[in-house]
Simulated assay, not measured.
Amino acid sequence: MKRPSPTAQERTFAENEIIVSKTDVKDRITYVNDVFCKVGLYDEADVLGQLHSVVRHPDMPRAIFHLLWQRIQAGQEIFAYVKNLAKNGDYYWVLAHVTPSHDLQGRLEGYHSNRRVPARQALVDIEPLYRRLCDIEERHPDRKQGMHAALEAIESDLKARHLDYDRYVLGLAAIGR
């Protein structure tokens, strides 16, 4: 699927709606709910079998996805603010809760994500942080070095605030609720 050029138009969804998707262990989409399709302007056929990164907005720092993958591949859940890309290039913000999924024998079979409307006030903190992390990543000619420099920056910021990543994100999630 061809990725659209991002627009400056934001899409929203209701606070009582939850965007749901599931992937296999290689991050290929195996399930999406109607809210996923409605908000992202996708038909189910557009995304099933595609890598979940099909909805990754270019404004998202690679460092945040690195943290996410580190956590879920270690069998842990994670909450993260994510800016997603709709099929037409519009964007939408979510507070994502991503967890590993296991079969009846306890083997990892994929990942499950529920996404809710983020508190608008939380985005006041997140948007400039993500811009700064993207700037750090872009300053390095090597993508991996850039990502690691951005990871160091966020870890340093959180340490200065006496927070770990989870307490930071969940603290922001409580804002405006």
Rank of each mutant, 00 (worst) to 15 (best):
M1P: 11
M1S: 13
K2P: 07
K2E: 15
K2G: 15
P6F: 04
P6C: 09
E10T: 13
E15M: 09
N16W: 07
I18L: 07
S21E: 01
T23C: 13
T23N: 05
T23E: 04
D24V: 02
K26A: 12
D27R: 07
R28E: 14
R28Y: 05
I29N: 02
T30I: 07
T30N: 04
D34K: 13
F36Y: 05
F36W: 06
K38A: 13
Y42M: 02
E44M: 10
A45I: 13
A45L: 11
D46P: 01
L48G: 09
G49M: 12
L51M: 14
L51H: 10
H52F: 05
H52P: 05
V54N: 04
R56Y: 05
R56M: 14
P58N: 06
P61G: 05
R62P: 00
A63W: 04
A63R: 01
F65P: 02
F65Q: 03
F65T: 03
H66E: 07
L68W: 04
R71H: 11
R71K: 15
I72D: 00
Q76F: 09
E77A: 10
I78T: 02
I78H: 00
A80R: 00
A80L: 14
N84G: 11
N84L: 03
A86E: 01
A86L: 03
K87A: 09
N88I: 04
G89E: 02
G89S: 05
G89N: 03
G89F: 01
D90Q: 13
Y92K: 03
Y92Q: 06
W93R: 05
W93D: 02
V94W: 00
A96F: 03
H97A: 10
H97V: 11
P100R: 02
S101K: 07
R107F: 11
L108S: 06
G110V: 00
P118I: 13
A119R: 15
R120E: 07
A122R: 00
A122S: 15
A122Y: 01
L123E: 12
D125T: 10
D125V: 11
I126L: 06
L129M: 14
R132N: 11
R132G: 11
C134Q: 11
I136D: 01
E138T: 15
P141E: 13
P141R: 13
M147I: 08
L151A: 02
E152L: 12
E155A: 09
R161T: 11
R161G: 12
L163K: 09
L163F: 04
L163S: 08
D164Y: 12
D166C: 12
Y168M: 06
V169L: 10
L170P: 12
L170C: 10
G171C: 15
G171I: 04
G171D: 08
G171W: 03
L172Y: 00
A173C: 07
A173N: 07
A174I: 11
A174G: 09
